[in-house]
């Protein structure tokens, strides 16, 4: 027998819960409406043309797309191997005594606000890149054909490489925490089956644990990509924000999509300018939804205990 009160309670809880999908829908719709003038005017060419001139009222976000792709690629290439390696070490190698505290420390670090990473990047990493790392890169690899182009131009420290590096440090604990959950969720029967065949510990990891956890680990990395893609403050503070040119050099002081919004939102003084900036936000939103959905599906497939963990 369900009482009336029971039904009222269930419906009110359901209504509150319904606000969650409605919020998502509301955000997407409002951004679409505001971005429409720009969407209608430029279509898909918005994403590939690089001329962004508020004075002449010409808007192409290609340079920002490029900067975002480059910084995200640097971030994931640097962070994913380290994070996945460390997660495997924590689950499969580390003594039980250090495993818990270390994993917890890393989880807390995933909570640190991005502005703090930005501050550290701006005051510590940028000078270090300018005085030490980038001259060294230019000195050693700068002369190599093709590869050298990546490290050409003036060395300022505020550039795509530093932006990617800060992002890498920022998403490292996020990927690590999720990958750790995924690797822990691999049934011990899989490990024992491989060990009993006479496998070394590394062979157990590489032939039984990692294949089993593959989807979830990819999901963790994809979630890291999603985070790097939309991250604003940490990148804005170190990426340079002065050139929309597409140049092979990682030392270009470029923009990312998110840093373009942060830098120019309050300056948008015409409808088209504003609309173009909202379209950038819309692009970030759509990419985030697609990438996150994909990552969650992948992580869920491996049955990680806290697959919904929010970081």
């Amino acid at each position: 027998m369900t009482s009336r009160a029971d039904r009222v309670f269930a419906w009110s809880v359901g209504a509150l819960a319904l606000l969650v999908p409605l919020t998502l829908l509301g955000i997407a719709l409002l951004l679409l409406v505001d971005a429409w003038p720009s969407v209608a005017r430029y279509g898909l060419s918005f994403l590939v043309t690089t001329e962004w001139d508020p004075v002449k009222l010409v808007f192409g976000a290609g340079g920002y797309v490029f900067g975002t792709l480059v910084t995200t690629a640097i971030a994931i290439l640097l962070a994913a191997p380290v994070a996945i390696g460390a997660s495997v070490f924590l689950v499969e190698y580390a003594p039980r005594l250090v495993r818990g505290p270390l994993a917890f420390l890393i989880e807390v670090l995933a909570y640190i606000p991005s502005i703090v990473y930005g501050l550290w990047g701006f005051f510590v990493l940028v000078p270090f890149m300018r005085t030490t790392v980038e001259p060294a890169l230019q000195g050693t690899l700068g002369g190599v054909p093709l590869l050298g182009a990546l490290f050409s131009g003036p060395v300022v420290g505020l550039d795509l490489l530093t932006g990617g590096l800060v992002l890498a440090i920022m998403i490292l604990p996020i990927i690590l925490a999720i990958a750790r959950e995924v690797v822990s969720a691999v049934p011990s029967a899989q490990r024992e089956g491989m060990l009993a065949l006479g496998a070394t510990r590394w062979e157990t990891v590489s032939r039984a644990v990692l294949p089993y956890a593959r989807a979830g680990i990819v999901g963790a990395a994809v979630l890291g990509v999603a985070r790097a893609f939309g991250e604003t403050m940490a990148v804005t503070m170190v990426v340079g924000n002065s050139s929309t040119d597409i140049s092979p050099s990682l030392f270009t002081p470029g923009y990312t999509l998110a840093s373009a919004i942060a830098n120019q939102f309050t300056e948008a003084d015409s409808e088209l300018y504003f609309s173009a900036i909202v379209e950038i936000a819309l692009v970030l939103l759509l990419v985030a939804i697609v990438v996150n959905a994909a990552a969650r599906v992948l992580i869920r497939r491996t049955g990680a205990a806290r697959e919904g963990m929010i970081l």
Binding site: P187, A189, Q190, E192, G193, M194, L195, A196, L197, G198, A199, T200, R207, A208, P211, Y212, R214
Partner: peptide, 21 residues
């Protein structure tokens, strides 16, 4: 121990074939 395990076969309580193989 790794060499010991490679001269002795073992079958477990629950079947544990490697699902990705």
């Amino acid at each position: 121990p790794v060499a010991v395990r490679s001269i002795v076969g073992m079958v477990f309580q629950k079947p544990n074939p490697f699902p990705m193989m």
